[in-house]
Amino acid sequence: MTLVDVMLPYYGDVELMKLAARSVMSQHFEDWRLCVFDDGYPSSEPADFFAGIDDPRVVYRKNEKNLGANGNYRKALENAEAPIVVIMGADDIMLPNYLDIVVRAFESHPEAAIVQPGVQVIDESGISASPLVDRVKKAYTPRTRTPLALSGEQMATSLIRANWTYFPSLAWKTSTIQRIGFTQGLDVVQDLAMLLDVAADGGAMVVDPELGFLYRRHSASDSSVRALDGRRFDEERQFFNGQAERFRSLGWNKAARAAGLHVVSRLNAGTLVVKAIASGKTTAVPRLFKHVIG
């Protein structure tokens, strides 16, 4: 059996998707399978591209109907068969050592359910970038020069303070992520919910500082004030309050306090209050301010 499945849910820029796929095919570690799930992109270019690849490890499938982002991610996860799975973004890039890092981490830490390698953020042009959200992530990322295993309340507290992981760069133990799955009804905090479920389930995450992945953040996504009406923070507030109750029931008082305070989430809403006022979108202000004051 193949050791690693790289699942690539796709809809969007064809050239960036090609870069992502080629980065998988360029891995030093060769025991992988790449499965691309095309969610009905209105062009034959993706199919033509993969038709020209003569490698049995590369599988291209086009959905009969559009499933939407969440539906396509769930389909990709359901089709994973290898012991390790990566659900990669269709515009991100694996460095050639990425699979070496994650396979080594799983071998060295049999208790691990997740591996987070070192990540560099790039913009739409492939240039290194460091927007505010990623500077915050970096500030909360555990400082370590060697692979570090986190579990239980320590893992939950660290992540609930600020989700410093990059979901497309994570490698998962397939049996764990398939059992836990994507929580229905969540959008903004979907990835954090899965990570906290692993922590509550007794799983561990290995943080390896070696750079192995390029995460693409588009400049347009950084201006979250556009069309912002505050609904994302309604979801975050409900989620954090629910996690606080969950952690208290587990006796994880430190994690419960961090979830109840959700300081970084409230600070984020505070920065958007200023942006909303400056851009004239004042209808969002009451909803944002409600989240700021908790």
Results as ranks from 00 to 15, higher is better:
Asp55Thr: 10
Met25Leu: 14
Ala76Lys: 03
Asp123Cys: 09
Trp32Met: 00
Lys18Tyr: 03
Val103Asn: 01
Gly71Gln: 08
Arg104Tyr: 03
Ala51Ile: 08
Val121Lys: 11
Val86Ala: 01
Asp39Lys: 06
Asp5Glu: 12
Ile84Arg: 00
Leu77Asn: 04
Leu95Glu: 05
Asp31Ala: 04
Val102Phe: 00
Gly89Met: 10
Glu111Asp: 14
Ala69Lys: 15
Ile101Ala: 04
Asp13Asn: 14
Pro96Ile: 10
Val36Cys: 04
Ala69Phe: 14
Gly118Thr: 08
Ile122Cys: 11
Gly68Thr: 07
Asp54Lys: 11
Asp123Pro: 09
Gly52Arg: 06
Asn72Ser: 12
Ala51Tyr: 08
Gly52Trp: 05
Ala51Lys: 15
Lys65Cys: 11
Asp91Gln: 11
Asn97Trp: 06
Tyr10Met: 06
Pro110Arg: 07
Asp48His: 12
His109Ser: 09
Asn72Thr: 13
Leu77Ala: 04
Asn79Ile: 00
Asp100Asn: 13
Lys18Asp: 00
Ala105Glu: 10
Val115His: 06
Gly71Asn: 06
Val86Asp: 01
Met17Trp: 09
Val121Gln: 12
Phe50Thr: 11
Val119Ser: 09
Ala47Tyr: 02
Ile87Cys: 12
Phe106Val: 08
Leu34Thr: 01
Val119Asp: 12
Gln116Arg: 07
Tyr41Gly: 00
His28Ala: 15
Val85Pro: 02
Leu99Tyr: 02
Ala69Thr: 13
Glu111Ser: 15
Glu111Ile: 02
Ala112Leu: 06
Asp100Lys: 00
Asn66Arg: 15
Arg33Asn: 10
Cys35His: 12
Pro96Met: 07
Glu111Met: 10
Gly40Asn: 10
Ala51Met: 10
Val6Trp: 05
Glu78Ile: 08
Ser44Pro: 10
Cys35Tyr: 02
Tyr60His: 12
Val103Lys: 00
Met25Arg: 10
Val115Trp: 03
Ser26Gln: 15
Met25Gly: 04
Asn79Ala: 13
Tyr73Val: 12
Leu8Glu: 02
Gly12Arg: 13
Lys18Ala: 07
Asp55Pro: 14
Tyr41Cys: 06
Ser23Lys: 04
Arg104Met: 04
Pro56Thr: 11
Ile84Ala: 01
